[in-house]
Design a protein around this nucleic acid. Structure first.
Lengths: 337, 337
DNA sequence: ACTTGGCACTCGGGAACACAGAGTGCCAGG
DNA sequence: CCTGGCACTCTGTGTTCCCGAGTGCCAAGT
């Protein structure tokens, strides 16, 4: 049904529309791409593509615009991820150079990605559940209040304030800290619950109430805060893209951690690129936007995801190239630290 | 020059324009506010106000709109900060209830403020230089790499990764940690530099190179990161306010930490409300926006600032009330932890 | 001296209209 | 199956026109 030339026409339509932002007609296509056929022939092909639902006519006498389905076909079969230019690659390297802690890495990454793609960038912090504990610290704040600091191998630092049921002396704090570290150091966070459950038996009875409170907060931290830490940047790019409508909806979605999480995708396929086009994503109000996301991680396992959100009429090959490259670089940086 | 009635007219113009978003004419004023005079008289007053530069006529045959100078007069002399309703006060309390760590307090505060005012909210983290050290932790990451964690009395947790010049054994790490904590615990951050400078003498020669590296990073953290930690929320509210132009400029400014810092104001007058109207603030591209800010802190000293940014045509009394109330509540929360 | 009603004037914005141009679908011929 | 030609259908733009809101000014009233 769709022969090679029709696919070529579709590709040409997508490319022209992305660069001009205006519906593209048969004549313009024949001029700008040497398809070797006349406008009339192209019109026939266009009619077929429209029947198939790949393109759409805003008005009777206007050119064609790709539909979500058309973009999907383009991304899947008609385009190749475009590698970054040397300059861009160098920009990434300088941007992420130096020894950095996790906060800095994430902050810089999200800005870099926004700048590179000219879209809104979204970066998720490395997942807690896939990390291991590196250190637990208990800092006394007041008689019955301590701050609990949890450091993971991915460099993530989680802090919680804990109200204790009774006054606790400094040496007991030290003892507790030692016990906790001995038990949890190197422990995969997924295994923390069982480790924690077994812990009270190793403690003297007098320490148990306090320990129980602290342990429950540790568990809570892992469950509640889960993987919800996520940041975005480049909202200004949304204003530049002359958005159809719903800029407000998009901004609202961006400020909802949960929505962002879902947008990046729950897929577990390694660092594969995920593209969600327009209505393919589950949120109304995000019609007209596409998401390009990838997983990143040190070595083989995916730690978290990052990506960009932009209008469906984005330049997919370039955007996908940038997202993939940044994901890889971040992975390397994390592996090195 | 400006008698009481002219001021009343100006107030009426500001109030009407804020609620309708449309230029207001003499007839409408006479109808909606009982000023006790006829439209013709009001017109005369308006002419005087326009001569004074307090109001402005978009077109010859349109109503009047307040100028920045007009808003300024309104804020300074014609309005009273409006206290929050009981429901709003309760909302604040429930929103900030529970024992929270600093990150949570700041995150919730900025969202609360955005929701309450329907503008963009901005909150600065408690200033580092006005805090004291509560705990220093050194966590080994690799042979020549450690993570440095700095906890302040305001609950702020700063983390840095440090590359060391040589391999360091665990017991030496412990020793260093003990020395650092002994020296710095309770130390005002402003005094850290001198304390740090005196420190190497108390150390054995073999520890000095490593210590020097770590100390320099501590100093760097205090100087470089200074007070630059700042967050915002509620960008979606910008889209709702049918902005004249420059939504893009505003979003860009919001993503620049430095610009945000300056916007909140560098004033040191305690928790006084600061209002910057339109062209009063130093950034082009923020014409058409006003900032309402206040300092917050536990007890008497100002730790940092928070505020909102919205169109100049905002409801100042209500906004100022909300900002002031939130600043006070946050101060209380911080004092309690 | 201030207020007020009356009046002529100005100008922006919306409605009505026409028109050019781009683009299409279809058909007949190569 | 491709192509040139042709009639047709729209949108967007520019023009004109008119209504109405709002003003400034003036002369009369208090």
């Amino acid at each position: 049904m769709l022969d090679d030339r029709k696919l070529a026409v579709l590709r040409a339509i997508v490319e022209d529309y992305v660069s001009t932002h205006e519906p593209v007609g048969s004549k313009a296509l024949a001029d700008r791409h040497n398809l070797g056929v006349s406008p009339a022939t192209i019109r026939n092909d266009m009619a077929a593509l429209e029947d198939g639902g790949y393109i759409h006519q805003p008005h009777t006498s206007a050119g064609r615009v790709p539909t979500d389905k058309g973009y999907r076909l383009f991304v899947d079969r008609l385009s190749q991820v475009k590698p970054l230019s040397g300059a861009e690659r160098r920009a990434i390297e300088t941007f992420l150079a130096g020894t950095l802690d996790l906060d800095e890495i994430v902050t810089r990454t999200v800005r870099l990605l926004a700048q590179l793609t000219r879209h809104v960038a979204v970066v998720q912090y490395p997942s807690l559940t896939r990390s291991t504990v590196r250190h637990v610290e208990i800092v006394p704040l007041a008689d019955t209040r301590v701050m609990l600091v949890l450091i993971t191998n991915t460099g993530r630092v989680e802090q919680r304030v804990v109200d204790l049921p009774e006054v606790i002396a400094d040496d007991r704090v030290s003892h507790l800290r030692a016990v906790l570290n001995a038990a949890l150091d190197g422990c995969g966070l997924a295994k923390v619950p069982e480790t924690v459950a077994a812990l009270p038996e190793h403690l003297s009875p007098e320490d148990r109430p306090v320990a129980a409170t602290i342990l429950s907060v540790i568990l809570e931290t892992l469950v509640e805060r889960h993987e919800e830490k996520i940041v975005f940047a480049g909202a200004a790019n949304l204003a530049a893209a002359d958005f159809t409508i719903g800029l407000r909806d998009v901004l609202e979605a961006l400020e909802e951690q949960v929505v962002l999480m879902r947008l990046l995708g729950e897929t577990d396929d390694l660092s594969e690129l995920t593209v969600r086009i327009g209505s393919e994503n589950p949120y109304t109000g995000l019609r007209g936007t596409s998401i390009v996301a990838a997983g990143y991680g040190s070595g083989d396992k995916e730690l978290a995801r990052l990506g960009v959100l932009g209008p469906t009429r984005m330049d997919y090959p370039v955007t996908m190239g940038a997202v993939r490259a940044v994901a890889r670089y971040v992975g390397q940086i994390l592996a090195g630290s």
